[in-house]
Simulated scan of single mutants.
Amino acid sequence: MNWYLAVLKNYAGFGGRARRKEYWMFTLVNIAVVAVLAGIGVAIDTMIPYVVYYVAILVPALAVTVRRLHDTGRSAWWLLISLVPLVGAIVMLVFLASEGEEAPNRFGENPKAVPAAA
């Protein structure tokens, strides 16, 4: 849950790098929340809670994805490959699951080497 809250605190931070753990823990919690809200929406016959959450989480999700791409040495422009049907989603999945660069890159220090702020 701390990883999820850390992403929300840095909701518009498109600069820097994000570890795989930060990205995937955020994604895991996000999927769980979406599933619960979709279930609630079906039960009460409206998808308003789901839509409100989706709109609220759009910028933080984009920001953490951009930072994750930065960790692998890619620019945010690689997000556009997601628009290519099927192949784009597979390529993005590979990029997001790849190990980050060990050395500092043009986007900042290696987040694994920098101690986490408490």
Rank of each mutant, 00 (worst) to 15 (best):
L8E: 04
A18Y: 03
P49T: 14
L5H: 01
M1Y: 06
A12C: 11
A38H: 02
W78A: 05
A32I: 06
A113E: 15
G108K: 09
V29R: 03
A113H: 04
V51W: 15
G108M: 10
L28R: 02
F95A: 11
H70W: 05
R106W: 11
S75F: 08
E99F: 00
I40F: 04
G15D: 14
V84E: 11
Y50F: 14
A18S: 12
I57D: 02
G73E: 07
Y23C: 11
L37T: 02
Y4M: 07
Y50R: 12
A76E: 14
F107Y: 15
F14C: 10
L86R: 00
I44M: 15
V51A: 15
G73I: 08
A117H: 06
A38E: 00
A43E: 00
K112Y: 01
L28P: 00
G73L: 09
T65C: 10
V55T: 10
R68K: 08
F107E: 06
R20A: 06
G16R: 09
W3L: 07
A103R: 13
I48A: 15
Y23I: 14
L69V: 13
N30W: 13
A6G: 01
M25T: 07
N110P: 09
A118T: 06
L5W: 05
L28H: 03
F107L: 10
N105F: 14
M1E: 01
N110M: 07
A103K: 13
V7A: 06
V55Q: 08
A12S: 13
G15F: 09
R67N: 11
V42Q: 13
D45Q: 14
V42I: 09
L62S: 02
G73T: 08
A63S: 11
Y50T: 10
L83H: 07
N2K: 10
G16L: 10
V94N: 04
M1L: 06
G41H: 08
N10I: 12
A103T: 09
L62P: 02
L79M: 14
A12V: 15
A43V: 01
G16H: 06
P60M: 03
G15C: 13
P104R: 09
Y50A: 12
L5F: 07
V114R: 01
I57W: 00
Y54V: 02
A117E: 13
M25E: 08
L86W: 02
V51D: 12
R19Y: 06
L83T: 04
L96K: 02
L93V: 08
T72I: 15
L96E: 09
G73Q: 08
S82H: 05
F95V: 11
R67K: 14
V66E: 03
V52W: 13
V36D: 01
A97D: 12
R74E: 10
G73W: 08
V7K: 03
E109L: 12
R20W: 13
D71K: 05
V33I: 15
V34E: 12
R74T: 07
V66L: 08
G13F: 09
K112I: 03
Y53V: 04
L79C: 11
G100K: 04
L96Y: 11
D45L: 12
Y4P: 04
L69P: 05
G15S: 15
A117F: 03
I90V: 13
V87Q: 03
T72W: 01
W77D: 03
W78H: 04
V7I: 10
V91T: 02
N105A: 12
V36P: 00
E99R: 00
V34F: 15
A89E: 14
L5C: 03
